[in-house]
């Protein structure tokens, strides 16, 4: 087991930030910690890294207890902090060289690693730039390069795509998958469900310091009753026509707003077919029609009663 967190409790005064949190991260996986802001993701990461003292629980990394002085463990961990941790006084190259130098003392080996990290995040053209001259996306890439240059076995990325443009975000996500393919185990925290869904092999959903669900994305989606969400743009629809929709089998709810009909149905076959037949039978004229599978937001919504973005 790469990381094992058992019954972790962390309090900030009266606030219970982590409430008996337990999870495991296996070798070779991309483990996603998903939750809204303030759910305890960063606190959990900081406890794993021994940056924060915790009140109860146990943490082991590489099957050894994690402590502030566990330097042999720290040697194999790469960390990309939520807040960009680079020196404004150093260039891109010097920054990566500094952080890599904390792990690798051999100058020649370090040079090769730094150059590899620069190429990996696509900062070749910016090596002599100072961080203040970089865009938000490039700065995040530099932050990642500083965290991964020493080729760690475990990489922890804490919301690495906050305030990043789509192009840089894609580059970062592709990079994380590539790192995983190279053999690194990854813990990835985010409140962007699309990202977590896109790259993580296993996901834990956190809310108010509690683990509310864990599993693969399919396992998580399987935990809820929602099977399909059908959206129809109608030109005109009457109350009786909406009632006809509600009478269909498997239908959980039908909402109409400004001519847009949102139909939520439980798992089952032929839901879309039944809706289309009813539209025809009731002579409802419509424009576009979409069918979506449930998202992690739907999972979060059904379990907590609130949207993930709240």
């Amino acid at each position: 087991m790469i990381v094992k967190v058992n019954q972790l409790v962390k309090r900030y005064g009266d606030l219970l930030a982590l409430d008996h949190l337990s999870f495991e991260v296996k070798q070779g996986e991309i483990f996603g910690l998903l939750g809204p802001n303030g759910s305890g993701k960063t606190t959990a990461i900081n406890c794993i890294l021994s940056l924060l003292k915790y009140d109860k629980g146990e943490i082991t990394v590489f099957d050894k207890p994690m402590k502030p002085e566990a330097y042999d463990i720290k040697r194999d961990i790469g960390i990309v902090m939520q807040d960009v941790a680079v020196f404004d006084e150093l260039t891109v190259y010097e920054n990566i060289d500094y952080f890599c130098g904390l792990y690798v003392s051999d100058k020649k080996e370090r040079k090769a690693l730094v150059e590899e990290a620069i190429n990996f995040v696509g900062l070749e053209a910016f090596t002599k730039f100072y961080p203040k001259k970089l865009s938000g996306g490039l700065l995040r890439r530099l932050n990642i390069a500083c965290g991964i240059a020493h080729k760690p076995k475990l990489i922890i990325l804490d919301e690495p795509t906050v305030a990043v443009d789509p192009q840089s975000r894609n580059k970062i996500l592709e990079g994380i998958v590539a790192l995983n393919k190279q053999g690194a185990t990854i813990i990835y925290t985010s409140h962007y469900m699309e990202e977590v869904e896109q790259i993580c092999s296993r996901i834990m959903i956190l809310d108010n310091g509690h683990m509310i669900a864990t599993g693969t994305k399919d396992e998580l989606k399987g935990m809820i009753s929602l099977g399909e969400k059908i959206t129809i743009e109608t030109f005109e629809i009457t109350a009786s026509q909406i009632d006809a929709m509600k009478a269909l089998p498997n239908i959980i709810s039908v909402d109409e707003q400004n001519g847009v009909l949102t139909i939520r149905s439980a798992k089952g076959k032929n839901n879309l077919e039944n809706v289309l037949e009813t539209l025809k039978r009731e002579q409802v004229s419509f424009g576009k029609i979409y069918s979506e599978l449930p998202t992690l937001n739907d999972v979060f919504l059904e379990i907590t009663g609130k949207a993930l973005r709240d």
Partner: peptide, 10 residues
Amino acid sequence: EIKWRNACAP
């Protein structure tokens, strides 16, 4: 950030 990042290093 720098202090914490350094604290993560061996």
